[in-house]
Structures are given as C-alpha cells and as structure tokens.
Amino acid sequence: MPRYFTEDHEWIDVDGDTATVGITEYAQSQLGDIVFVETPETGKQFSKGDEAAVVESVKAASDVYSPVSGTVTEANGELEDNPALVNDDPEGEGWFFKLNLADTGEFEGLMDEAKYKAFVDKL
C-alpha cells in the first residue's frame, strides 16, 4: 500500500480506489497541542488542493488540503472527542478522512517517504 506526502504536510495512503488522509509527524510537531479538528462530511467532493479539514492548536488554525480529488467516504469520528490523537499518532490513529478516488492516477507531484524526509530536512 503506497504512502505519498505533499508539500503541505499531508500524507495519503492509497489502497485501490480508496485513500486515507492525515497530517504528518512534522506538521503536528510544528502545530503543538491540537485542540480541535474539523473533518469533512461524508459525501463531500473535493478536487485536488481543496480545503478539506481544519486543524487547530491553541494559537493557530490550519487548513488541511485534499492531496487528490475524490469523494469523502468516512471521517475519523474519534478526533472530535480526542483531538490529541493527532499529536500522539498523526500517521496512524490520528488520520483525518477517507476518500473514494476520482482518478487513481492523480499522484504526480506527490512525494514518497524518502523525498518528503529530504524536503522536511531542508525546512
């Protein structure tokens, strides 16, 4: 199951025509304690780059963009009661939403893990 990364610090796991999206370990470390996550409603359609979710720390609110186009099939309901999951396990239990992909070939411009690591190291 390939995992891709964006320059906006989202990660995306692709499994056939479904994908899971979250924010990276680096992103959570920059935000500090996450206090609130607003996830998208099921059925919502996104184009690549659309604002899809909002993640809030005490002093900052950041938009999370959809790395690819697709329709939301599920949002992580756990985050409502326990936004700290994003701090504790951003690239696992702290996932944001799942998408039904509109185009399974739309991964140009996304990075693999090694490239993303190199990208972050330069920041």
Binding site: V35, F36, E56, S57, V58, K59, A60, A61
Partner: peptide
C-alpha cells in the same frame, strides 16, 4: 477557543 477569532483566523 480563540481560533474562531480574527486575530488568528
């Protein structure tokens, strides 16, 4: 809940 407000949002 200041993230609702103008100085952050």
């Amino acid at each position: 809940l200041s993230t609702r407000e103008q100085h952050i949002r």
